[in-house]
Structures are given as structure tokens and as C-alpha cells.
Computed example of a mutant assay.
Amino acid sequence: MTAFIEAASPHVMNTYGRVPIALERGQGCRVWDVNGKEYLDALGGIAVNTLGHNHPRLVPALQQQLTKLIHTSNYYHVPGQETLAKLLVERSAMTNVFFCNTGLEANEAAIKIARKFGVDQGIARP
């Protein structure tokens, strides 16, 4: 395993202190290294993906979607996005949904929505 890690290191920017484990595959919340040793994946993609690995319902859904659209801008209407938004609205106390790509966009939108709410309430400098 050490040779694999050393061979991979020259091309990957060393921005984190890496654990000397080279992961190869996953199933649910478990992952296996290139030597077959099993681990519990307690990091969940570090706030990127907490859906686990190789889920039997998620993988076929993703494969089906990949044959249609991988990603589109919010400049376009996407029927699947509207379907998901409708389900989210039905299951929450909200009236609509904002989809974005990052936490930065989510925070920016929250600030803008809060400011708009303040202006709508007559607050001069919300």
C-alpha cells in the first residue's frame, strides 16, 4: 500500500495531512482499502455527500439520470427539479425552494432573502 500512496502523491496537492490509507471501494457506511481492509466511513465525504456508498436504490437512479442530464444551470427549467421542489414544499412549512451548488451560494441567498424580507417590512437598512 505504501508504494501506491507514494506513486499517487506527486500529482495531488498536499493540502491536508493525509491518512496512510488508499480507499478502493465502499458499500453503505463501510469502505475498503486497496489491501481489502474494512473501515467505517465516519467522514461521509466531509460535508459533500452523506448518502453512503453503492446504495442499491441510489446507484440505478444516478445511472438513469446520467443518460439524460448531469447538470444544468438554474437559467433553465428542469422538470425533475420542479418535481423535487414540490415534494420538499409539501413536506415542509416553506412555499418554494432555492437550489444551489455550494454552501457559499446558500449563505449568500440567505442573506439576500433576509434583506429582502427586511425591506418588505419597511426597515430602511435591514
Rank of each mutant, 00 (worst) to 15 (best):
A47Y: 12
D33R: 05
A114E: 07
C29I: 02
G103K: 06
T83W: 01
P20H: 14
L43M: 03
Q81N: 06
V12Q: 06
R25G: 11
R91P: 03
R115A: 08
I113C: 14
R18A: 15
V89W: 01
S9G: 11
V89N: 13
L51K: 10
I21T: 14
P126A: 15
A109L: 06
R115S: 03
V48S: 07
T72E: 14
T83D: 03
V119E: 00
R25C: 09
V31T: 04
L69P: 00
L43N: 03
L62C: 06
V48G: 11
I5T: 04
Y39G: 00
P79Q: 10
T50G: 15
Y76V: 08
V119Q: 05
E105G: 09
H71D: 13
A61L: 15
Y39K: 08
T67K: 15
N49D: 13
P60D: 09
C100Y: 00
I123C: 00
H55L: 13
G17S: 11
I46Y: 05
R91W: 01
V59P: 01
K86C: 09
Q81H: 02
N49A: 04
M1K: 15
T83M: 10
C100K: 01
A109K: 13
L88C: 08
L69S: 07
I123S: 00
L58A: 12
Y75S: 09
L87H: 10
L69T: 15
Q27Y: 12
E108N: 08
N96R: 07
I123H: 10
V31W: 11
Q63A: 08
V97G: 02
P60T: 01
P79A: 04
Q63F: 04
L88V: 14
G28F: 10
N49F: 11
F99N: 07
A93E: 14
L62D: 09
W32D: 00
P20F: 00
M13N: 10
A93Q: 14
N74I: 03
N107H: 02
T15M: 09
K116Q: 10
M13A: 10
R115F: 05
H71R: 13
H11W: 07
G103H: 15
V78L: 06
D41A: 09
L62W: 12
F99V: 04
G28R: 10
G26C: 11
D120M: 14
P20T: 04
V78S: 04
N96W: 04
I113Y: 03
S92T: 14
A93I: 07
T67M: 06
A22N: 14
V48I: 15
I21G: 01
I21D: 10
V12W: 06
A22Q: 03
A85T: 05
K112M: 15
L40Y: 03
P10C: 00
L62T: 02
A22S: 09
Q64H: 13
A110H: 09
A85P: 08
E38P: 04
